[in-house]
């Protein structure tokens, strides 16, 4: 987990994103236990309330769930949900910034499409 204390983004959101990333990359598999609030708090020197707030975002999004008296676990289907969410955000996250940067560099629309095609051919 990597947290950036200088970021404008609140730490609890960063925690939620990092756990999500761990699930997305397969570091945390479905139905396995997520590190406890206290473990994360002690490991990263954060107030447990901050960590809990981040975890609760993922509970609301049905990415993780609470097993009473045991801890938090990754939901079945969490990976699919995360992929779905990221697909929905793909345009805003990547296409917008790609076009904005291209405009700053005076790269023509046709040129971008060519580059994307080249990237696929290289594979």
């Amino acid at each position: 987990m990597r947290l950036n204390p200088d970021s404008q983004k609140p730490l609890y959101l960063q925690i939620a994103e990092q756990i999500e990333e761990d699930i997305f990359l397969g570091r945390l598999e479905e139905e396995t236990q997520v590190p406890s609030t206290n473990e994360v708090a002690l490991g990263y020197q954060l107030n447990p309330a901050t960590v809990l707030k981040g975890m609760n975002i993922l509970v609301d999004e049905r990415v993780i769930y609470k097993k009473r008296g045991i801890g938090m676990f990754v939901c079945t289907g969490a990976l699919n949900n995360i992929k779905q969410k990221r697909q929905n955000n793909f345009y805003a996250e990547y296409v917008d910034s790609l076009v904005a940067e291209a405009k700053k560099l005076n790269i023509e629309r046709e040129e971008i499409i060519k580059m994307i095609n080249r990237r696929y051919i290289d594979e």
């Binding site: 206290n38 708090a41 002690l42 020197q45 107030n47 447990p48």
Partner: peptide, 10 residues
């Protein structure tokens, strides 16, 4: 000190 404070708090 901060580490042990958190530990005790937890």
């Amino acid at each position: 000190f901060y580490k042990f404070l958190l530990e005790c708090y937890v």
